[in-house]
Structure formats: structure tokens, C-alpha cells
């Protein structure tokens, strides 16, 4: 397993795979890893991303329009794995593309393509019997979301069924950038930590060095998604990898992570 946070806090980068195209996502992924990201979440574009804000919706729509499929994202994972054996790679998807492939087949393929873990946005622990069985069979880490609205009973189940890390959603709402990290996040992380020794990563709205530093005070890793997807949207494709590399590097530095 390569999901392992050596730095404090660790940095997880979410990318909508195939935006602007798969080759560029590959270059961006390596740039992120080479500049301090330890785990990548490769987002499978979906036609109906109902947990996502406008930035990831647009990226997803562009990638779907290009015909990017779950299997293309797995191929991408394989290439990244070959180039960066140490990287943590999580396949991040809505459920339906996975259902289309079949849960057992998907888990097998994810393993074969070098993924370490999977996060399914609309999969909750109660519905996860088959998913957990197939993940276990393939020695993959299921990462579940924990929300500020989750009561302790749910946090306990989420913690018990997660492997790799637990994804703590910083605030109620959809993905997207925000100005301030809400106090929800710290309370949630300590709630999760009652039940597990797994690392806890905080995402949704974490968009700059200041946020990363704030998250580092109470959690093990920070997940940066929309801010990077937006940067990619705003940058010509030939310059996207370099821009993301610089941005990720800045996330740890003083006043970095700004554009």
C-alpha cells in the first residue's frame, strides 16, 4: 500500500481525469507528485456529479464530452503507477460507471492497474457489502466520506470500514473553493479519531497554503480539488502541468499556493 503520509500535513490532489485530456492529466499528476503531493485522487468524469460544485461540474462535463471513460482512467492510473511507484493512487468515482463495469470486475481491474484505493462518492457504509468484499479480495483500500452531519454511530462505522485514510468533509455542502475553513472540520476530525488510528484527510474547500497549514494543526492531510481543477481550466494546456506543480509546491510554503 502506498497510501502513506510522511509529511505533516500530507497533500492529496484531486484531478478530474481527462480534463483537458488524458495525456495532460498524466503530466499534471506527475508534476503534483514531484512537488509534494503524496496521494492522487483520479476523478472519473460523470454526467451527473451531484456532490460537486460548478468548477468540477464543468471539468467533468468537458471530459465526458471528450468520451473519457472509467477504463481510460484506470489506464491513466497504470501509467502513473509505472512512472511513480511510490505514489498513492485513489480512483474517485460516482457509483454508476462502476456499476456498468460490474463491482467485482472493477475492483479487479483497479488492482491490476495499480490503484491503492477507491472512493465512491455516493456509496455509504450500509450499502457497501459487495463493495467491501471485492475491495478486500483485491487488497484495495476503501475510503469513505465522513461529514460534519454524521453522528458518532456513523463515524464509527465509517472509521471501521475505511482503509488508507478517512476523508473528512470540511463543511456541509458540495465541492468548491471557499475563503475560510469552517470550525466544523476540526470537530469532525476529532470525532473520527475517537474510532480509528487511520490518517484523516480534510477536503472540500481547501484551496491555499493558509488552509493547508490550518488543516495541518488537527488532521493528517489536506485534500485540494476545485482550486487545482480551476487552475487547470484557466491555464493553457501546455502550461498546466508546470502551473500545477508550482501551485502544489506553494501549498506548503509561506504565502504559497496563491496564483
Amino acid at each position: 500500500m502506498a497510501i502513506n503520509f510522511k509529511q505533516k500535513p500530507g497533500i492529496v490532489v484531486y484531478l478530474t481525469a481527462g480534463d483537458p485530456d488524458i495525456e495532460t492529466t498524466y503530466d499534471i499528476a506527475l508534476a503534483a507528485l514531484d512537488n509534494g503531493a503524496e496521494v492522487l485522487e483520479l476523478g472519473v468524469p460523470f454526467s451527473d456529479p451531484l456532490a460537486d460544485g460548478p468548477v468540477i461540474q464543468r471539468a467533468s462535463e468537458r471530459a465526458v464530452a471528450r468520451g473519457v471513460r472509467l477504463l481510460d482512467v484506470l489506464e491513466l492510473a497504470k501509467k502513473i503507477r509505472a512512472a511513480r511507484p511510490e505514489a498513492g493512487i485513489v480512483i474517485f468515482s460516482y457509483l454508476n460507471p462502476v456499476v456498468r463495469v460490474g463491482m467485482a470486475e472493477f475492483c479487479k481491474l483497479a488492482k491490476e492497474h495499480g490503484a491503492d484505493g477507491v472512493l465512491l462518492t455516493d456509496m455509504i457504509v450500509e450499502e457497501a457489502e459487495e463493495y467491501l468484499r471485492e475491495m478486500k479480495k483485491n487488497d484495495l483500500a476503501p475510503v469513505f466520506l465522513a461529514a460534519p452531519t454524521s453522528p458518532d454511530e456513523r463515524l464509527k462505522a465509517i472509521a471501521e470500514h475505511s482503509r488508507g485514510f478517512v476523508y473528512a468533509i470540511s463543511r456541509v455542502g458540495i465541492t468548491g473553493t471557499q475563503q475560510n475553513l469552517e470550525s466544523d472540520a476540526e470537530r469532525l476530525v476529532s470525532g473520527i479519531k475517537q474510532f480509528t488510528k487511520l490518517p484523516v484527510a480534510v477536503g472540500f474547500g481547501v484551496s491555499n497554503a493558509e488552509h493547508v497549514a490550518a488543516v495541518g494543526k488537527f488532521a493528517d492531510a489536506a485534500i485540494i480539488g476545485s482550486a487545482i481543477v480551476k487552475l487547470i481550466e484557466d491555464t493553457p494546456r501546455e502550461q498546466a502541468a508546470e502551473a500545477v506543480g508550482k501551485f502544489v509546491k506553494g501549498l506548503r510554503g509561506q504565502g504559497g499556493g496563491s496564483r
Binding site: 469513505f144 460534519p148 456541509v172
Partner: peptide
């Protein structure tokens, strides 16, 4: 049927 939603909605 079932329930396939982001965790944030589960409590609700």
C-alpha cells in the same frame, strides 16, 4: 432502491 447518496445527506 436503497440509498446511494453523499454521506452528508445520510443523517437527514
Amino acid at each position: 432502491g436503497g440509498r446511494y447518496v453523499p454521506e452528508t445527506l445520510m443523517a437527514a
